[in-house]
Each structure stands twice: as structure tokens, then as C-alpha cells.
Design a protein around this nucleic acid. Structure first.
Lengths: 229, 229
DNA sequence: ATCATTCTTGACTGATTGGTCAACTCTGGT
DNA sequence: ACCAGAGTTGACCAATCAGTCAAGAATGAT
């Protein structure tokens, strides 16, 4: 039916495949986020993607494969953001940029964050190897950096682990508990100004908490998506 | 009824009912925490409780009723802990006690915390009224208290909402993401000393972050369950 | 000992699930 | 015009699900 012409300008086959996979993955991310792996149904994902259920299995062989694809995509996005923790910058700059970036991610990828939370809460049956290798390596290098800051007397002596967990927890909270936050906000999503204020507050408390003076908010550009890679 | 006599260790019927309901609720809390509502099965809960599945339906009429009971129990536990935010105390004392109590709760009720997180992530289909009434009221009163602290110049001027969310996020993270934390801890659960250090670090960063000097760790008694109400 | 009541449980049911399949349409190349 | 291969889809299947039920076991009161 009209399915084919909904693709981009060029009607190439690979475009159809890419477009449909994109739609399926987007729908799946949302449904997995809201219901967890076990609670999600292929029918629900199909409906949300606007495709018949059999079509899902044509592109993604099984529910588990689909879930794995979703989780891997999220982990890659997380990895990109993790780069904004510049190990060569000053503590103020490295931490404030990282926190701001993670807050922005909670706003832009709230479904992905929830899927990640769900996966970890269930004991990470799918992504345990990511945790043990990639995440652990990333964490260890940042811990080393923070420890060097401490040794240089740049920040107060705190166990770097707890500091990192605090940043993760606080920023991801705005995605995972978005519904609770909205309810306590009178049922309305946070406005642009509220997001910016929350980001500055979180950044300010954490930086001051370890003995730093937070830098002036960076250009205030809230919709300046992100800088170069 | 004949309930006049105080419930002793007699093998009375009500004892059997209470004991079985307790076992079912405990098993259900764990399974709902690990799989979410949709992913949990009555068979799994029955196996974990050591009872035949039909027995579950004898005590609790449906899966949804069972889930509701679990969630309500968790909310009540949360409410008790919320009392440790003493509105009459100094900011240092009110906040440090509240944070310590919430950290302890993350350790003692990790399943409950996960069920709560799951429920909120799914849009709080069951407990929306709790969010809108009880939680909102509690939050508003604490926000008012924090605002008074600010007006009195006791703490730095920060939006109280973001401060509360930060405390919730950070403390609950230790329950909801316990698996990730364990993995990054070499596969071992946090030791008593690590829990205490994490608590003090979280407390220290947040208090210093709003311009307070954290009080000396309270008696360091890590297994001194909790004081009176 | 009798008996009403509570508790136990294997066997069952209708509904829903993930996944399959064969018949079908559409597309670009020739 | 024709065709090979990509994309589409309703109908179907075995497995699993929440929930039911009736027959029986256990218990306290008399």
C-alpha cells in the first residue's frame, strides 16, 4: 500500500529497509521503556510502528534480537556522551560539561534511559558484558583522573566512585522518573527554563560539594543541540 | 470475632493466613522488582514462595490485586522514612538524617525500591493518586521548609525541588542500580564500610553543595538499625 | 467423634503470546 | 512486457499466561 512511498525521496530498497527498521526500533524503544522486556508485546510495538506484526519478524528475527538492538543503540549513545568527560580539562570544565550533557540526554532520550534502567534493574541479562568491559574501563579511567585532581589538591578528597554514581543517578533521574517529576510539576513537563535551572542547580551543588566554584553557565544555549563530536 | 485473645504463637488459622500472605508478598515484591508487572508471572511468584500457584489466588484474588498490595506496602515504608526529614531541626541535621535514612532504606529494601521505580517509569498506572496527593503534599511542605532556610540565609539559594530530586535520585540509585554498582565493585556487594563511606560522601557533597558544613558522622553505628520514630 | 470452616492442590480453560508461513504486491532492471 | 527478488500480510500454531474449580486434607470447636 502507501507504505513504500512513505520512505525518503529515492525509492531504493535499502531505504525502505532502513526506514522500517528505524520505525520499528523507535517504537520498540518506547514500548520496552514503558513495559520492560517481559511486559512488552510484539503486537504493541507493531501497532506503535504502524506495521503489521509479521512485518516486524521480517526485519528483526525475534523479540530478543529486537531488544538487543535497542539496548545496544542506547549504550552507543551513552558512550558518545561519555566522551564529553574530557580527561584533559580542568575539573570545573570536565564535570560541568559532562553533567550538562547528561541532563540534555535525559531530556532527548528519555525512553532509552528507561530501557537501560530496566535492563540493569533486571540484573543486566543482556548487557552484562558491556558493564564488565566497556563501562568498567571507562569508569576506571575517570576514577584515575578524579584521583589525580584530589592528589593535586584541586578538589576535596572524596571517593571518586560515589561522585560518579551521584552524577549518573541525578541526571538519569530526570529521564527515568520524568512522570513523577511532571506530576509534582502540576502535570506539566519541565519548561526550557526549568531544565536549564535544574541543570545549573545540579551542577552547582555537585561542584561546590567537592570544593569547586561552578563556571558561569555556558552561553545558556539550551537548544544548541551539541557541539562537534 | 473471637479476636479478643491476643495473637500468641498458637497455630491459629489467622496465623496461617498471615504467614502465607507474608511469604507471597515477599516473593511477589522480588519478582515484580526483577521483571516488572508485565514480565512477572504468577507461577514464578508461586515457586519463589514455595506454594502452588492456585494457593496464590486463594489468598489474593488477582495479579493486579497482588501488585497493588506490594506497591502500597512500599509506599508506606517510604512514608515512614520520610518522617526522618524533621522540619523543626537545623538544615544540617534534617538533611543528613534524611539522606542517611534513605541510604539505609536502599540497602534494606532494594526490591521495594525497584518496584517503585518500575511503577513510576511505566507512568504510575496504579499509584498516580498517591503521587498527586500524599507525595505532592509531603513535597510541598518540605519545599516550604527549605525555602525558609534560604530566606534565613542558612543555605545557598537553590530551587528546593531540584535539591529534593537530587537526594531521591542519589539514594535510590544504590538500590535500583545495585547490580551495576556491584559489577563495578568487582562483582561483590558493597561492604559495610563502603556503604558508610558512600553515605558520608553523598551527605557531604550535598550539604557542602548548598553551603553547609556536614555534621560529624552520627555515632558511626552502621548496624544500629534506627532510632525511635 | 462429629462437623463446619479454612486451607490445599492438580487439572483444567479461554485468552494471549512469540513466531511461522504461504500467498500476495511492489519495484527496478532488462 | 516480463521477471527475480524485496517487501507485505492475514491466517495460523504451539506454548504460556492468569484465573477457575472441585475434590480432598487439616484444624479448632463442640
Amino acid at each position: 500500500m502507501t507504505q513504500t512511498e512513505s520512505a525518503a525521496k529515492t525509492g531504493s530498497r535499502t531505504d525502505i529497509r532502513e526506514e522500517n527498521e528505524r520505525r520499528i526500533l523507535a517504537a520498540a524503544e518506547q514500548v520496552f521503556a514503558e513495559r520492560g522486556f517481559g511486559g512488552a508485546t510484539m503486537q504493541l510495538i507493531a501497532d506503535k510502528a504502524g506495521l503489521p506484526k509479521a512485518n516486524l519478524h521480517y526485519y528483526l528475527s525475534s523479540k530478543e534480537v529486537l531488544y538487543r538492538r535497542v539496548v545496544e543503540r542506547i549504550f552507543n549513545i551513552w558512550l558518545e556522551a561519555a566522551d564529553s568527560f574530557e580527561t584533559s580539562a580542568t575539573p570545573e570544565r570536565a564535570l560541568s560539561r559532562y553533567i550538562a550533557r547528561k541532563m540534555q540526554m535525559s531530556r532527548d532520550y528519555r525512553f532509552g534511559s528507561k530501557v537501560w534502567a530496566n535492563e540493569v534493574m533486571q540484573g543486566a541479562p543482556i548487557i552484562q558484558d558491556y558493564l564488565e568491559v566497556t563501562l568498567r574501563d571507562w569508569t576506571e579511567t575517570r576514577i584515575a583522573v578524579i584521583r589525580r585532581w584530589i592528589d593535586a589538591g584541586l578538589i576535596r578528597p572524596v571517593e571518586p566512585r560515589w561522585l560518579l554514581y551521584m552524577i549518573w543517578a541525578t541526571t538519569q533521574h530526570y529521564a527515568d522518573f520524568a512522570h513523577q517529576i511532571e506530576t509534582l510539576n502540576g502535570g506539566h513537563p519541565l519548561s526550557d527554563a526549568q531544565w536549564q535551572d535544574a541543570t545549573e542547580t545540579v551542577c552547582g551543588i555537585i561542584l561546590r560539594g567537592i570544593g569547586l566554584e561552578p563556571p558561569a553557565p555556558e552561553a545558556a544555549g539550551r537548544d544548541r543541540a551539541e557541539g562537534a563530536p
